[in-house]
Amino acid sequence: MENLLYAQTQHTPQIEFNEKEKTISITGNSYPEDSFSFYQPIIQWLKEFMGNCSQNDTVKVIIFIDYMNSSSLKVYFEFFDILEEGNDKGVKIDIDWYYQIDNDIAEETGEDFALDFETLNIKLISRN
């Protein structure tokens, strides 16, 4: 399985998924014109990766998105669903949700995820 690498653009975040290291990192903004098409291969990769993970594995997820549009938000529910499935089958998943200290919308979005996915270990971390 190949690692997944997307350079950051004005509308889309930098994406670095490393299969061997079991790290998943997403940073930047997310408002592509067609979020579903943009995230389709990313979701696909995550599904396959999570399917390959076993009970003793630890996966580190870092998400630091300043701004995401509504369709991106919908995609991230699906993203967290996949993580939750992995979590349910015993993979240890640590999620760090970063937000700029004055960005209350990003903070609340993190809180919403933490509430909706109560079994997932989501840590909210503010940055200056």
Binding site: S70, L73, I105, E108
Partner: peptide, 15 residues
């Protein structure tokens, strides 16, 4: 659950 998520999306979109 889905309805809940939809509400979250709408609420945030409004904000």
């Amino acid at each position: 659950k889905q309805n809940n998520r939809l509400n979250i999306i709408i609420k945030r979109s409004d904000k």
